[in-house]
Design a protein around this nucleic acid. Structure first.
Length: 324
DNA sequence: AGGATTTGACCGAC
DNA sequence: GTCGGTCAAATCCT
């Protein structure tokens, strides 16, 4: 566990992390003790408290880890297969060449198709501002799709080497449904940092999320409170085009009024969950199983479904805010 | 004028 | 050859 923290942490930060980890261990032990000593009437007010303490430690560790990682990694991990060779701007014009018959540069070998990079899908009835500055770089008509797919890259791709991209596609006529597929993480520093994990959510509308990681596993999220992954921001720029509504500002209104100032990717969020957080039973049927996690002020119902997409496991996550 | 978007071409994977 | 992802010149927008 210790090894998952970045190498080059400042020593005081390391100490803080160590202390937090100790605290979490103690809380786990306390939880075990409490569980053993509790009667069968089910009432365990102390356990809730322990769970919260545990989650608090886990979340703090997660924040520290993420903050450090973001600060350290100017350039992305090489897992983002999809992008063209990042050389600052495929500047390899290398002088004399490239002038032959066509005015276009020789792009051979310059990029590969995206395949195995981290990705996650967000379905939403409206276009949600995710707080990052995106630059549209393409639009493509997709076979058997009624609407074209729109391609966006991080605005800071060339300044900071940020490899994050996303694709937005309208999938339904009425009501409109937008599927946004995110690839790669933002490594740019433009992202406002999280000061705490769970903040007020924009008004919930049904939306779901499907996570796909490099190993071929998918995680499908259906979250009532959209917030943990895509809270609202002020965005510098936003996408719009003929297929996506031109009155995009409209769709963003309720988000922009929010004070949230962070973004968590699904992995980040999942990392705040600990196996010890499983607080209610497992219901298994032949193809699905369900567990309930509690993380801070949210309950998360995790339903695992076999062979949903191309032999991949699918996790469907549903969130319930129980703060009120 | 400079940045963002549009759009046809290019390219690799299948 | 087709398809989807990306490039980059042209165009639009502020």
């Amino acid at each position: 566990m210790e090894s998952c923290w970045p190498e080059h942490l400042p020593s005081d930060r390391k100490k803080a992390i160590d202390e937090l980890m100790k605290g979490r261990e103690f809380a786990k032990q306390l939880k075990v003790v409490l569980c053993d000593s509790i009667g069968e009437d089910g009432s365990m007010p102390a356990e809730d408290l322990v769970v919260k303490i545990l989650n608090s430690f886990t979340s703090s560790l997660s924040i520290l880890n993420r903050a450090e990682t973001d600060e350290v990694s100017q350039f992305p991990a090489s897992t983002h297969v999809g992008s063209p060779c990042w050389d600052g701007r495929k500047s390899e014009d290398s002088g004399e060449s490239s002038k032959s018959t066509s005015t276009r540069k020789d792009r051979r070998g310059c990029y590969k198709r995206r395949r195995t990079s981290h990705s996650w899908i967000k379905n939403s009835p409206e276009l949600v501002d995710d707080g990052h500055a995106w630059r549209k770089y393409g639009q493509k008509v997709i076979l058997n799709a009624k609407y074209p797919r729109n391609y966006f890259r991080c605005t800071h791709k060339f300044e900071q080497g940020c490899q994050a991209t996303k694709q937005v596609q309208r999938t339904e006529e009425e009501p409109p449904m937008y599927r946004t597929t995110y690839y790669g993480h933002h490594t740019c520093k433009n992202l406002l940092k999280a000061s705490h994990l769970f903040l007020d959510a924009p008004d919930a509308t049904d939306s779901s999320m499907l996570l796909s990681f490099g190993n071929g596993r998918h995680h499908h999220l259906t979250n009532k409170q959209d917030t943990p992954f895509f809270s609202s921001f002020q965005s510098v720029k936003q996408e719009n085009n003929n297929e996506l509504p031109n009155d995009h500002d409209h769709h963003l209104t309720h988000n922009q009024s929010s004070s949230s100032d962070y973004l968590l990717s699904p992995e980040d969020h999942l990392s705040t969950l600990d196996p010890a957080d499983v607080i209610s039973g497992v219901n298994s049927s032949c193809t699905t199983s369900t567990t309930t996690h509690r993380s801070l002020d949210l309950d998360m119902i995790v339903t695992s479904v076999d062979n949903h997409f191309d032999d991949d496991d699918v996790l469907e996550l549903e969130y319930f805010d129980y703060t009120e």
